[in-house]
Every structure is written in C-alpha cells, then in structure tokens.
Design a protein around this nucleic acid. Structure first.
Length: 264
DNA sequence: ATGGTCGGCCCCCGA
C-alpha cells in the first residue's frame, strides 16, 4: 500500500498534476491540503475517472483538505474532537482536518494553521490547535494501542534546524519557534513516529515561490506523515517527489510518499 | 529593510 500527502495549493489549478501524481506513483491514498475550494467546486470527475473516491472538506478559498483513495473510504470524519476554530464560535468555520479509513488504515489529512508571526493571534491559535490534536490523537492510542493511524499533511513546522535551508534566516520567525517544535514533539511523545524523515534525510518538502528558493535549493521540511506504532511497523520506505516541484504550474510543496507492507 | 510568486471570491490579502 502506498500513501502520500501533498499540499497542492489549489486543486482546481492543479488537477492534472494531481492525477499525474496518483498515476506516476501508483498511489492508493493521497491526502491533499490547501484545496482552496468549497466542496461543490472540487473537480471530482477526473479522480472518479482515474478509479478513485474522494472525501473533501472545503468551506472557503484559503483552506480545504481532502482524501483521495482507491482502496475504500469509510467513516469519513470532518475535523477531530475538540478541534479549535478560528475566532469566536461560529465566526469563521475552518477546513483543516478530514479523516477516513482506507484499507484498514485511519488516514488524516491535516492542514495545521499558519502562525503568520510570533505575535499574531494566529500563532496562539496554531499552538492551541496542535495541543488539541495531540490530546485527541493520544486518546486514539490510549483506546487502542494497535490502532493503525497516520497523521499526515502540512504541519507548518520545521522541527529541527536541519529542516530549514538556513536557521539564521528564520530567527524570530514562525515555523521554527520552540513552542511550535515542542508541539510537534508532543505528538511524537504521544506515540506517533515520523516515518518519512529517516528515509529522506537532507531533503525538503517545501520551497517558497519567491526568491528563486527552489532552484537555489532553499527549502523547508514542513510536510510530515506521523504513524501509529502499528503502521510504523509496516513502513518499508518513503520518498519526497521533488520532481513534482519543477516546471510551470507546480505547487510550492512536493508530495511526500510512504510505502506500507501488507498486514502481517 | 524588501513577497522578487503564486493562489483566491483577483488590483488586495495570505502563504
């Protein structure tokens, strides 16, 4: 089974590339972030045509997540228990998390809030969001230590200095602050494992569109797949599709792939 | 010092 996560930065502007990613890598499941469309605007037909089902959650032009699967898509859940929304209750609905069970694996497509700046209210919201994710995900393992779950998506966190092209550039900026890194580590401490980094050390998953960051190899590792112990035991490999970042019409993120062995 | 590029409900804001 091959699963992947990709911040596509608008699915409508990149549907052909998305189908290409599915087919080039023979993917069973693809978690998408920043679909940037409402559910009724999602370009479903090409995915159905290619043999996939889609569960999506989009409410506006900024966020939006989806799970694309050809191995079943059951028990779809919008958001997770306790997931904070931005602003006062009902002020702004968010579309940042969707979960579904695909061939026995609970897949989550997550778009962690961008903190914007350390003194911005969105930064506090990001930390709050991550704390609730940690609590809820820890609960899943407490309920079932053998749960097969994968939390994957755009975490908007570079957990280590080696996950950015130049740590000095990021001093005082979001994505690398200690509270964000601690929030990421707290999910690891809850029992989930980063199953991609060990197979892709030294590689990035995101390059800013500006400043020629991609050709200058000035990227960040902010997209992750965190697996429960039962899934971690099945991982046989992982890769970052840097080729997908090339050329006209690329997203600013590369797809991140994980291979799982059949259940023992 | 600086968003130089992308996306969107598109000439402004957010990433």
């Amino acid at each position: 089974m091959r699963i992947a996560t990709w911040n596509c930065n608008s699915i409508r502007s990149r549907v052909d590339r998305a189908i290409g990613v599915l087919q080039r890598h023979d993917l069973d499941v693809l978690a998408l972030q920043e679909t940037k469309c409402k559910d009724e605007q999602f370009p479903l037909a090409p995915f159905i045509e290619a043999g996939y089902e889609v569960a999506m959650h989009g409410l506006n032009q900024w966020n939006g997540v989806a799970i694309v699967s050809r191995v079943g898509l059951e028990d779809v859940q919008i958001g997770f228990e306790g997931m904070p929304t931005w602003g006062e209750p009902d002020a702004v609905a968010e579309a940042r998390a969707i979960g579904a069970t695909c061939a026995g694996v609970r897949i989550w497509s997550l778009y962690v809030p961008n903190g914007r700046d350390l003194d911005n209210p969105h930064y506090a919201y990001k930390l709050d969001w991550l704390a609730h994710l940690r609590d809820t995900a820890a609960g899943w393992l407490a309920d079932d230590a053998d749960a097969q779950s994968v939390l994957m998506g755009d975490w908007n966190i570079a957990p280590r200095d080696e996950d950015v092209w130049d740590p000095s550039f990021f001093i005082g900026k979001t994505h690398v602050s200690e509270p964000e890194r601690a929030a990421f580590r707290s999910v690891l401490d809850a029992g989930y494992a980063d199953v991609v980094t060990p197979h892709t050390e030294g590689q990035f998953t995101y390059w800013d569109y500006t400043q020629l960051r991609f050709p200058k190899k000035q990227g960040m590792r902010i997209d992750f797949a965190l697996a429960s112990p039962a899934v971690e035991r099945r991982v046989t490999g992982a890769m970052i599709d840097r080729e997908e970042r090339k050329g006209k019409g690329a997203s600013d993120h590369a797809p991140v792939l994980v291979d799982l062995a059949d259940e023992a």
